[in-house]
């Protein structure tokens, strides 16, 4: 029974990946919107873009990690 609950929990934690996807999309989309408005400044902000993407994605990875832990380690 506990195992099944853990699997359900893993599935719920996987929703977090979708949330991270929203975050990554927001970052990339806003970067693109800004870059198209001011292409001259776009190149100088790619580092910021990647940092933002990394932070947004890290939280999705945390959700994934929770899912993995529930699946394999609990």
């Amino acid at each position: 029974m506990e195992g099944e609950l853990a699997h359900i929990g893993a599935g719920l934690a996987a929703i977090g990946s979708g949330a991270a996807a929203i975050g990554v999309g927001t970052v990339a989309g806003n970067y693109l919107a800004g870059a198209l408005r001011n292409p001259a400044a776009a190149a100088s902000q790619t580092a910021t873009l990647f940092i933002g993407l990394a932070f947004a994605e890290a939280l999705g990875i945390f959700a994934f990690l929770v899912a993995l832990l529930l699946m394999f380690a609990v």
């Binding site: 994605e57 890290a58 945390f62 993995l68």
Partner: peptide, 12 residues
């Protein structure tokens, strides 16, 4: 987050 980001991405 610094370490789990890398491991998580590759592992995933």
């Amino acid at each position: 987050s610094h370490s789990i980001r890398l491991a998580g991405n590759v592992m995933a």
